[in-house]
């Protein structure tokens, strides 16, 4: 993309901050959510899928407000709601191409953290550029994003180091007895109007202190251009067992594979896309069995460079949102942040 385009594109994505602030009493909060549930699908963080033996927190449809898990960010990212892990691109019957139908109810997301929201913004940059992805767009158009500000980071996240942007329809800040609410978009403003009983206008209630996030972890530099041949990258790839969890848990990673699934008549079927992982060897295999980035080391560097440098070169934003899910979800807890910090 040309520079002018990037600016324009970002303006259309990055919400024009509307500096209106509201509060909602915690006593009214549950009632508010119940009203949301009546009208829309409410998607929020829950402690774990009840059907799973080893639960990890994730985003799910909320039926009752008490299911919400708001202590910390979720283990799984929210991306599956926008980038469906098994999207049908089209159906076919011989040479005839049939457009897929997607049923969408308007979804309200609550409890998105800044890292989740920036992940959505980065995916917007990829999927809503001049070659717009219609499936992603349809799912994004049907969504309303309500954030929840973290005051404390966990053991893995380092979002202060990666220049996160304000990107939300509404953002909630926990102020003890009440939530302060910041409006990010026109859509957000209209939403507040629908629930005017519970939101009270209160200017400048959100202080600088409220906006802070206290991280335990820090990435010292975002400039790794000259470190590509550094030996210490091996410290990371030498621990990697090659499961690909880092990319599947990343709120940004969007690489995919396209497959045809055919029915037994061998004539009808559908073309689907599924998430892929650049950390797995077959990611780049071409006909004739050549594999690029055949070594784990090259694949590891590819992931980190995409997160820190490549995306920035193209879109002028750091891809990584500093959520640390790739470290938390890694069986070997490969701490690439530490590896970079220790480089010269």
């Amino acid at each position: 993309m040309v520079k002018g385009h990037i600016e324009m594109f970002k303006k259309s994505l990055l919400f024009q901050m509307i500096m209106v602030q509201f509060t909602i009493d915690k006593g009214d909060f549950e009632g508010f959510l119940r009203k949301v549930i009546e009208k829309y699908d409410l998607i929020g963080p829950v402690e774990g899928d009840k059907s799973k033996l080893r639960r990890k927190s994730l985003f799910r449809k909320i039926v009752s407000p008490d299911e919400l898990f708001l202590e910390k960010k979720t283990y799984f990212p929210v991306k599956g709601y926008f980038f469906d892990p098994k999207e049908t691109l089209f159906e076919f019957d011989g040479d005839k191409i049939i457009d897929p139908k997607i049923e969408l109810k308007k979804k309200v997301f609550f409890g998105l953290r800044r890292c989740d929201l920036n992940g959505i913004m980065h995916q917007d940059m990829v999927f809503l550029d001049e070659n717009e992805d219609p499936f992603y767009k349809a799912r994004r158009d049907a969504s309303f994003l309500i954030g929840l500000h973290c005051n404390e980071g966990d053991d893995y996240c380092f979002c202060n180091s990666v220049e996160l942007k304000d990107f939300f329809d509404l953002m909630f800040y926990d102020k003890g007895k009440e939530y302060a609410v910041e409006v990010g978009t026109k859509k957000g403003e209209e939403f507040i109007k629908k629930f005017s009983g519970v939101f009270k206008k209160k200017d400048k209630i959100i202080t600088e202190e409220d906006r802070k996030i206290r991280n335990k972890k820090k990435l010292d530099t975002l400039d790794i251009k000259d470190n590509y041949d550094d030996d210490s990258w091996k410290k990371g790839s030498d621990l990697c067992v090659g499961c690909g969890a880092c990319t599947l848990l990343c709120p940004n990673c969007h690489c995919f594979t396209i497959e045809d699934e055919v029915n037994f008549d061998l004539k009808t079927g559908k073309r689907v896309r599924k998430p892929a992982s650049c950390q797995l060897r077959h990611f780049t295999r071409v006909a004739g069995d050549h594999v690029f980035r055949n070594e784990k080391l090259a694949r590891f560097k590819h992931r980190i460079y995409h997160q820190i440098q490549y995306f920035k070169d193209r879109h002028e934003e750091v891809f990584c949102t500093g959520c640390g899910r790739c470290i938390e979800g890694c069986p070997a807890r490969i701490d690439w942040v530490k590896i970079i910090n220790e480089m010269k």
Binding site: C255, F256, I258, C278, F283, F292, Y310, F311
Partner: peptide, 19 residues
Amino acid sequence: AERLMYCGIGKCGRCMIHG
């Protein structure tokens, strides 16, 4: 350059060479 690719429009990420 020859790479595996699925989309042709900079989405699938498969054909990326050093960014």
